[in-house]
Amino acid sequence: MKPPIFEYASPSTVAEAVALLASRDGSAKVISGGQSLMPMLAFRLAAPELLVDLKHLKNLDAISIGEDGVRLGAKVRWCDIESDARLAVSHPLLAEAIRHVAHYQIRNRGTVGGSLAHADPSAEMPGVAMTCEARMTIVGSAGSRIEAAADFFTGPLQTSLQPDEILTEVHLPPWPAARRWAFLEFARRKGDFAMAGVALHYDLDGTGRIVDAHVGVIGVADRPIRLAAVETMLNANRLDDKLIAAASAKARESVDPPSDIHAPGAYRAALVATLLARGLKKSAA
């Protein structure tokens, strides 16, 4: 398990990094925390000619919190999120979701940008980005662009990132203090990728009815997805056991997870239903 030969560069500006990526016609790759890329190299599932390390790029590791929401630089690591006490108030869903990512050592290196770019269908950060309608800032040879999460994730381990593009920042919209939310997942062991997970949030109107429900799920499709039918069912209604049961049943029929060595698709569908019911209960507690 030795990686194939590759060249290595660690530029000090985004522009240089983009130029390096552009120079190789698709056979250069960004390396950030290396926690997903290195295993792929060791297994020889990827063999880029050039690795462009982001480690010397400045200003990509800040967590900024303002009126307009939370901005995470691409190089923000899981442990940075974990140790930022402000997020418990500014974005409790993010803070809770990230607690489930991987193990101590990996959390010290793995990054937000790396996870989003890697786009594992079971990963927490892409799930949060989808659920919360995050917007990504992407820089490439053609300049910079902003992409909504819904357009960013295009398939299993696939995104709209072009070979010469770098994700520099992800922006999560503001979080009202009274917002109801939950994040629940089930993994075989602590730190494993989830077999399925549910992220949800909604607000309540003056009469206690749900408005603007967001329900996202991970681990049940080729990318993180929103369950629009469930959201519709929740909106404008009061959360009670009946609604929870109906939403849970709706969730089960709204997903069609593939079967793999770890579980039949039907299990993951049922798991989503279970997690959604538990999540909705928790959100009301």
């Binding site: 295993p39 297994f43 075989r188 062991r189 602590k190 730190g191 494993d192 060595i261 770890h262």
Partner: peptide, 24 residues
């Protein structure tokens, strides 16, 4: 250790072959 019908081993790493860990 999971094999498919063609005798391919599908659990070729510790990501898929699950060992008990300290917290389990």
């Amino acid at each position: 250790l999971v094999y498919d019908d063609e005798g391919q081993l599908l659990t070729g790493s510790f990501a898929d072959y699950l060992m008990p860990t300290a917290s389990d």
